[in-house]
Simulated assay, not measured.
Amino acid sequence: MSDNIRIISGSAHPDLTFKICSHIGVEPCQTRQVRFSNENILVQIEENVREMDVFVIQPSCSPVSDGIMELLITIDALKHASAKRVTAVLPYFPYSRSDKKDKPRISITARLMADLLEAAGADRVLTMDLHSPQVQGFFRIPVDQLLAAPIICDHLRATRNLDNYVLVAGDVGEAKEIGAYANRLDLPIAIVDKRRDGDNEKPRAVNIVGDVAGKKALIVDDEIASGGTLIEATEFLIKHGVVSVEAAAVHPVLSGNAIDRITASSLESVVVSDTIPLRAETPCGKIEVCSIAPLLADAIKAIHSGSSISQLFR
Rank of each mutant, 00 (worst) to 15 (best):
I287T: 07
I106Q: 15
F93G: 01
V243S: 13
S60V: 01
G214W: 08
P28N: 08
S2M: 08
A182K: 02
R160T: 06
V54N: 10
A190T: 12
S98E: 14
A169I: 02
K79H: 05
R314N: 13
I5H: 06
L117P: 11
V49A: 08
P104W: 07
V43T: 12
D211L: 07
R140H: 15
S265Q: 09
G198F: 02
V245L: 08
R111Y: 12
N257K: 14
S226D: 12
D15S: 15
P142Y: 00
P150A: 08
A81I: 02
K176G: 06
F55G: 07
V89W: 05
E118K: 08
G137Q: 04
A119L: 15
K202A: 13
E27R: 14
G170W: 10
A180C: 02
S310L: 13
P252K: 07
R35P: 02
I303N: 12
L296K: 09
A302P: 06
V34K: 13
H13P: 04
K194M: 02
S62V: 10
R35I: 15
V26G: 05
I231Y: 11
M52G: 00
D193N: 15
A110K: 01
S310F: 13
L185W: 10
S291V: 01
G121H: 02
A233E: 04
D274M: 04
S82Q: 06
V166D: 05
K79W: 02
K194E: 01
D199C: 00
D115K: 11
V272Y: 08
E174Y: 12
G241K: 06
I141H: 03
D144W: 05
N200M: 08
G198E: 06
R85F: 01
R184Y: 10
S308H: 04
P28K: 11
R85N: 13
D76T: 09
S82C: 15
P277R: 14
T159R: 14
R160N: 14
A110P: 03
D115V: 14
S65I: 06
H240S: 00
L146S: 09
V172W: 09
G227V: 07
G227S: 10
V192K: 03
E201S: 13
R85Q: 15
Y165V: 11
A122K: 09
A248T: 05
G214P: 06
D76R: 11
S62I: 08
D197F: 13
L126D: 11
T74H: 07
L16V: 08
I73Y: 12
Q33A: 11
Y181T: 02
I108F: 09
D15Q: 14
L126I: 07
A169R: 05
V86N: 04
R140T: 12
I303R: 10
K19F: 00
L16A: 11
E288G: 00
D123C: 04
H251M: 11
I189R: 06
H23K: 12
A258Y: 05
V64I: 15
V43N: 05
L230Q: 05
I292Y: 05
A182Y: 01
V289G: 03
I292W: 05
D171G: 07
Q33E: 12
